[in-house]
């Protein structure tokens, strides 16, 4: 096989892999009713901001978790990978929405753009991290990159992966309305305990190994990881309009509620990415 043929072959495989990653993350959201409504209801400028913000996030994702071996690649290469991931995210989102009937001839241009924008962001994230999902044995070299910062990035990505499909649902707001201050604090403590247990205590394959004292690990990873989880959850809630018109207390409780699945995603990130 010549070099050009090999490159074309690998490019095709990579694109297929990225498409599978996009579907893995995007398909559940394509089939979520709230996402159909949010795509046409959310202010267009907020959706434009979401798309613009997703592009540098994609560059970071492909840098550490992307569908190419990160060794020897520069920023331009990562930008290229991120743009490919975005394009594949848009294409798979469009195809999935057409197949399940979310898109039809009656949609206006504004609705079409809104739906593509809100659905393509998680799909392109899935495409960007497809290598970690679908290529057996990769990541060993990449996980040495960045050390502590890389661990925190993994947590943020794992949180986003799990919380993305819950954040747009009405249930988050309904549950937050039922949770009082004390119950909210207990939920937060339980989430942190779960996060710590999954990554550092349970005997899962791929779990973190550290000789550092318990409190060092707890403060440096679990507490910081939970703060990152809350930040990601707040960003998702704002993106999906779940904080619009809500008071500070309700917004915080919404974040704590969403951080229940989010913290498990953050904890499990090292196991599944």
């Amino acid at each position: 096989m010549g070099s050009d043929q090999a490159q074309a072959h690998e490019l095709g495989r990579g694109a297929a892999r990225a498409g599978a990653g996009a579907l893995l993350l995007g398909l559940p959201l394509v089939m979520t009713m709230e996402m159909w409504e949010l795509g046409v209801v959310l202010p267009p400028l907020r959706l434009a901001g979401l798309v613009l913000l997703s592009l540098p996030v994609l560059v970071v994702l492909v840098r550490y978790l992307g569908f190419r071996d990160g060794k020897g690649l520069g920023l331009a290469d990562h930008v290229a990978d991120a743009l490919v991931a975005f394009g594949i995210g848009v294409a798979t989102s469009l195809a999935a929405m057409l197949v399940v009937g979310v898109l039809d001839g009656g949609r206006t241009v504004r609705e079409l753009a809104g739906l593509v924008a809100i659905q393509s962001v998680p799909a392109s994230m899935g495409a960007a991290i497809a290598r970690s999902h679908f290529v057996a044995g990769t990541g060993g070299d990449q996980r040495q990159l960045g050390g502590y910062r890389y661990e925190l990035l993994l947590m943020a990505v794992g949180c986003a992966l799990l919380a993305f499909s819950v954040a747009p649902t009405a249930e988050v707001v309904l549950l937050a309305g039922r949770v009082g201050a004390l119950q909210g604090a207990l939920v937060a403590v339980a989430s942190m305990a779960g996060l710590h247990a999954i990554v550092y205590s349970l005997g899962f394959r791929g779990q973190h190994r550290s000789d550092a004292p318990f409190w060092s690990v707890f403060l440096g990873y679990t507490v910081v990881g939970y703060v990152i989880t809350l930040a990601v959850c707040l960003a998702l809630l704002w993106t999906f309009g779940q904080t619009d018109g809500a008071g500070v207390r309700l917004v915080l409780v919404e974040a704590v509620v969403l951080a229940v699945p989010g913290s498990f995603g953050a904890g499990a990130a090292r196991l599944v990415l």
Binding site: L11, L47, A48, V51, A80, V90, A113
Partner: peptide, 22 residues
């Protein structure tokens, strides 16, 4: 792959432009 990246960039530009104009 740069060609694919160009398509992705074009999609992003068109999408953001439409949303901003709307």
């Amino acid at each position: 792959e740069w060609a694919m990246a160009g398509v992705g960039a074009l999609l992003a530009i068109v999408l953001v432009t439409v949303l901003v104009v709307v």
